[in-house]
Design a protein around this nucleic acid. Sequence first.
DNA 1: CGAATGACGATTTTCTTATTTCGTCACTAT
DNA 2: ATAGTGACGAAATAAGAAAATCGTCATTCG
Lengths: 202, 202
Amino acid sequence: MAGAMETVADAARQENVARILDAAERLFRHYGYSKTNVADIARDLGMSPANIYRFFASKAEIHQALCARMLDGVYAVALEICRSKESAADRLRRYSLAQYRLTVEMMMDQEKVHEMVVVALERDWHVIDKHIDRMNALLAEVIREGIAAGEFPEQDANVAARCFGAATVTMCHPQMVAQCLAKENRATPDELIDFAIRALKK
Amino acid sequence: MAGAMETVADAARQENVARILDAAERLFRHYGYSKTNVADIARDLGMSPANIYRFFASKAEIHQALCARMLDGVYAVALEICRSKESAADRLRRYSLAQYRLTVEMMMDQEKVHEMVVVALERDWHVIDKHIDRMNALLAEVIREGIAAGEFPEQDANVAARCFGAATVTMCHPQMVAQCLAKENRATPDELIDFAIRALKK
DNA sequence: CGAATGACGATTTTCTTATTTCGTCACTAT
DNA sequence: ATAGTGACGAAATAAGAAAATCGTCATTCG
């Protein structure tokens, strides 16, 4: 009974958390992170600013949670691809291209979103770090399967995953993508992905 | 005669340009780019601020020239390595490690130097872009030699060079190096270089 | 009794003004 | 004639006051 109550209360709590994040995301995207204050978010939801603080300890924590939620979305896409039945090489290719597409799309909402990324990069690094860890774990899994299937030669899958991630960082790191977009003398995503996959094949 | 005069004048001019850059570099490193003004540089050289403007059109141009001079130093090191008699793979390994070492050293003078890098990245991009182009040309040359020597299979050396550069960007891009230094779950320089060279070997 | 709030002090941000710095130009000295 | 300068207006920056935002808490509401 107490357990059920807690569950119900938690569900309601999660509902509020989600609504706050939805509002924050919309407002951050429209007005920018620094130009949006908690009063704006509260007003948008028809609640008092103080009430926001029952769910988040600070404005920074809202940003952090939002950041985590967005990365969850990226991870979900990656997971979907990595769980598919294609060859390991094909999955890696699709994985990288999807990463690239998502990053480009994210940076296309230039200006406002860029500010959020900068803030995240210098303050919510641990959130991003966790994301990198699980993405690397995913890569390692695919590579291990590729090795098992005889697609890649015997090698340390974890090291290979870290190298693959590092080699394709220009395609998933927002600042890199922003810096290299529309640059002529650069490797194309396809070229770079082929290059990285070739390294795995030895 | 007029030609000789011009040559002499130009030599004197280059001498002054170099002295100004030397002073600027020392002051920028010590006080930071924004905290150093042209009057400081002029005073350090015992000349008037106005005289600086006979050699550089603006403070920004001094920074740009300094940036170019530093990159020239990096290029010289790279050139030395690439012209050596080792195997292509060994030269690429030494090239990448040297790049990494230089970048780490540069970022170690943290704070003041970091400011200069940020300024360069967002204002002197074309200088950096030229540098990237010639570094890629150097890489392509080594790779071409590696192909000729039968060390690497037949492939487009220019594309390969661009890919190799992109794959090892985490080791020569100041922001990347600063972000990844002292991170545990990352590929080491040696691992990443092996990975990239393996891609060239097919 | 827990969800929600209005009121409030502490900190940040914005706005205004004063000072510094940039870059030009007519001019001096060699 | 050419290297170099002092003086000056325009633009950028720093300093300080005013306003806003953040986050807390005792209290109200359902």
